[in-house]
Design a protein around this nucleic acid. Sequence first.
RNA 1: CGGGAAGUAGCGCAGCUUGGUUAGCGCGCAGCGUUCGGGACGCUGAGGCCGCGGGUUCGAAUCCCGCCUUCCCGACCA
Length: 469
Amino acid sequence: MAKPPVLTPQADDFPRWYQDVVAKAELADNGPVRGTMVIRPYAYAIWERMQADLDRRIKATGTQNAYFPLFIPESFLTKEAEHVEGFSPELAVVTHGGGKELEEPVVVRPTSETVINAYFSKWVQSHRDLPLLINQWANVVRWEMRPRLFLRTTEFLWQEGHTAHATEDEARAFSLRILNDVYERFMVDVLAIPVLLGRKTDRERFAGATNTYTCEAMMGDGKALQMGTSHELGQNFSKAFDTVYLDQSGEQVHVWQTSWGVSTRMVGGLIMCHGDDRGLRVPPELAALQAVVMVVRDEDGAGDQAAAICDRLKAAGVRAELDDRVDTSFGRRSVDWELKGVPIRIEVGPRDLAGGIVTLVRRDSGDKSPVPLGEVVERVQGGLSAIQSTLLAEATRRRDERTVDVTTVEDAVEAARTGFARMPWALLGEDGEGRLAGQGVSVRCLQASDGSVPSPADTDLIAIVARAY
RNA sequence: CGGGAAGUAGCGCAGCUUGGUUAGCGCGCAGCGUUCGGGACGCUGAGGCCGCGGGUUCGAAUCCCGCCUUCCCGACCA
């Protein structure tokens, strides 16, 4: 008998589908204060996996973790003109503490460039102190007009890297290294999300940066999501906070800086990039739970056999879990695991065991196949790596199919209804960018003509144009 | 913050137009039994400041005012 679909189909209403997944897969709830979010255990486990992997990659660049305060004196923000202008509309400001009005209001950090520079300026004295490479995992607050779980919440979790270098070239190279070696590799290899790398236009640049680089991904509905950014800050903050070092010739020089971050928004990107009408699809590399071993009915030793299989998978390094809740119907449990996007399900029932097999179900395709008992571990391992590649291939194919070359603003707007447009920046320009904005479309990034991140000297730039989250 | 829609049990909704005594339905939840290979079924039961505050009235889920929240569309953003 046909049941109503568990989720609103993507094709009917994508935003609704997104909310359904977040609710039904038990990922998050709205917090009691507008724009805030309660991250539930299953989604938090995904975030923890993201954190662990990124943290390792960040440390591999020589960056060290530290922690700076949540509260920042309001006066710090105002030291960098563009920065304060960019952030003031979304600041949460604390005016009272200890039952009294504060002499100087304190802002809840929207990002930490300012407070970190206040300390960098103390820590950096000599060229021997450089480069200074610091990262922090923290929450930040930006008062959002239109919040959306994971994608745009008033408080979110992220990592923010902050570095100081002796030269502009070094700083630029480092911000690109983070973009390529940390962010792109993580997103492609772990999240299985293909990303376009490029430079933001002046209009989209981070407030206080001289250059903003970005990783842009295409979601299931063809809209773009900025998955991460890396900024060159030039000497804007070092001049505002007087962060200087003595170079080899004994001269005082302002440091050149970068900052870079990725946030819990990536969880939203993961949902919208890989999710289908049955729910989430978590790439195996990322999945906290890669395989679930389901006891269909505990007869003829199915329960014991399933437990043994689960143990063998764990021993082989597969992140597996046993589902022996046989008092809940089989269909119910299957639907639940599909909603949560667990890559592989192993069904163990009397019927399988009679044939000396179990049934392996792939979440990406839904394919079911019989697997001899002795081959389960190998087949699961093979399946996991196949699913990882399939998810990346599917996302890449969608992105390529939905990206078209255009030469006019009208065509770009039309293309942005379903995907990305590539348009020569020389033809678009800031005027064209303004016209796009009027249509709810933006320039996601600029690329060199070969699709790489442009250097400042590059001309012949291509604008990637899309609607964005 | 502008334009639209909506807040009634955990979730989805009806009731409101035309005020009336005990506020319903589906799903979910608890107990028991029968089931179990794709959201099982039956019986019994628990669960409501009807978003919040004020007003009108003998009486408000229902009418009026204000506020808050959520969703969609715009301006801003990781």
